[in-house]
Every structure is written in C-alpha cells, then in structure tokens.
C-alpha cells in the first residue's frame, strides 16, 4: 500500500506546517537557561574587568598587551574591541563549545531526544533548529561583549570620534555600524566551530565530552595556525581569520578577510553539517 495515499483526512486537514515553532522553542530554551545566561554574563565581565583595571592603574600600556588596549584611555569606545580580541582565542570558543557540544548529546543525556523525535520533530529539522541555536549564541556572545564594553567604556573614559586604523575619523553612528559589522564578523567566524561541535555532539550521549572535544579542536587549530612550518595549512584552518577583523576598522572598509572568512566558514559548515546529518539521520536513539 502507498503510505502517501494512506494519510488520513484528519492529518491532511491540519497539514499546514509550522516548522518554526521548534526554532522558537529552541531559542527560548537556550537563552532562558541559567547556564547560557551565566556564560553571557561571564563574557560581559571581561570588558568591565579590562576597563576597571586600565582606569584604576591609570597607566597607558606603552604598546604592550592586546590590540586597542592603548587606545582605551583615549577613547572609551575601544573597550569593547579590546575585550573581543581578548576573548576570541579562548572564552568565545569555550562558551560556544559548551552550547554546540550540548546540542544533541545534551538532549540524549536527558533522554528528551527520544521524546522530541517521537513528537515527531524530524531529525533534519531538529538538527537545523539546534544549529540555529548555536548560530544565535555565536552572534549573542560578541554582541554582549561589545555592548558591555561600550557601556563601561563610556562610563569610565572619554568618548570622542574614533580614529580608525587608516587615520580617518568616524562619528558615533559610523562606529556603531562598524561595531555591528565586527560582531557579525566574530559570529561568522564561529559558525565553522559550531558545525564541528554539532557533529561531535551527534557522536556521543555525554555532553561534557562533546563540549570538551569541540573546545580542544578550537585550541588545536589555533596552535597549528602558529606553526610557520605549516604555512600551507593555515588558510584552511577554521581559526585562521578569527583575528582578521582589523580591516573593518579602515576607511574605506576592506572586505577581503570578511569574504575569505565567510567562504571558509561556509565550507566547514557544509562539511560538518553534512557529516552531522549523515550521522544523526541513521543513528539509533538508545538513550
């Protein structure tokens, strides 16, 4: 018999699909969860810490320390940038790894994965919803850092038109636009890692393991990126363009690194998204 013809009238009548309800539920569950809020709060503390230390010591950095650190005393708007630079190597991949590693493995560990699938959520749709949550976190994290940084910066330091790396100045509106671009750049840069985390998460029912593996991969990629002997490999590492956002602070904006980063992240997303789907679509849910 043909199952397509066999769909009963009642199901067909209510067949108007609402595929986005799960996305909404996923976002709400993720961002109302205490753990997520705590991670975002921890990220917000970083610029506050930097600003307070610079303010209290009152000393310039004499060119040492992370990028933009020396500019803070001159212009509070740089606090957010400095904090982003500080967070990119460790804190951002760490928090994103927690969210991405938890996606499937976390539901499996709770046992809720089986109930989502018999609801039925559909395996592809569940993966998409989970990845949407990861992507939303990848955007939320830098936005929180930048906003907290600008807030505390404006509070503790003078705010004036910003002198860009190219020597031009931009007003508050221009700076806001560039900050938004910067946050988007960091979010974009994290998409590849998010896809890796999603894939790792389909391999296990132990969320902590998936989280750790994801974070370790981010660290390993950055280490490889430091080794000059592996020059040929560097453009293929998903962390390679993580700090390449300086181009956004020139006038006119140089889009090269944005484009290359987007291409690279898209490739990682395609490969690891496909792997995650291949794994998850046929997986026996035994937890």
């Amino acid at each position: 018999m043909s199952p397509d013809e066999a769909a009963p009238a009642a199901t067909r009548r209510s067949a108007a699909l609402r595929p986005f309800a799960l996305f909404g539920s996923e976002l709400a569950t993720l961002f109302l969860r205490r753990r997520t809020i705590a991670m975002l709060a921890a990220l917000a503390v970083v610029p506050v810490l930097i600003a307070v230390v610079v303010r209290v010591t009152g000393a310039g950095s004499n060119g040492r320390g992370p990028a933009f650190l020396g500019s803070i005393t001159d212009n509070g708007l740089f606090v957010g940038f400095t904090a982003l630079v500080v967070c990119i190597p460790l804190f951002l991949p760490l928090t994103l790894g927690v969210v991405a590693g938890d996606t499937i493995a976390g539901e499996a560990a709770l046992g809720t994965l089986r109930y989502l699938l018999v609801a039925p959520a559909g395996r592809a749709r569940l993966l998409l919803a989970k990845y949407a949550g990861v992507a939303a976190f990848a955007l939320a994290a830098p936005v929180v850092i930048v906003l907290a940084g600008m807030g505390i910066g404006a509070l503790l330091f003078p705010v004036r038109p910003v002198t860009l790396l190219s020597g031009d100045t931009t007003d508050a509106a221009g700076l806001l636009a560039r900050t938004a671009l910067l946050a988007c750049y960091v979010a974009l840069s994290l998409l590849g890692l998010g896809a890796i985390g999603l894939f790792v998460s389909t391999l296990t029912t132990v969320p902590v393991g998936a989280m750790a593996a994801t974070v370790v991969l981010a660290g390993a990629s950055q280490i490889l990126d430091q080794l000059p002997q592996l020059d040929w490999l560097h453009p293929w590492l998903f962390t390679h363009y993580w700090l390449g956002f300086g181009d956004l602070l020139r006038d006119p904006i140089v889009w090269d690194s944005y484009g290359q980063d987007a291409l690279l992240q898209a490739a990682y997303l395609a490969v690891f998204g496909a792997l995650a789907y291949a794994r998850f679509a046929t997986k026996d849910i035994l937890s």
């Binding site: 609402r18 309800a21 039925p120």
Partner: peptide, 12 residues
C-alpha cells in the same frame, strides 16, 4: 510546550 512545538503539525 516544547514537546508540543516539536511537531510541526501542532497548532501553536
């Protein structure tokens, strides 16, 4: 609610 939302056929 989350379980209910997981089914695309359920009326929100």
């Amino acid at each position: 609610s989350r379980l209910d939302a997981a089914d695309p056929r359920s009326v929100s």
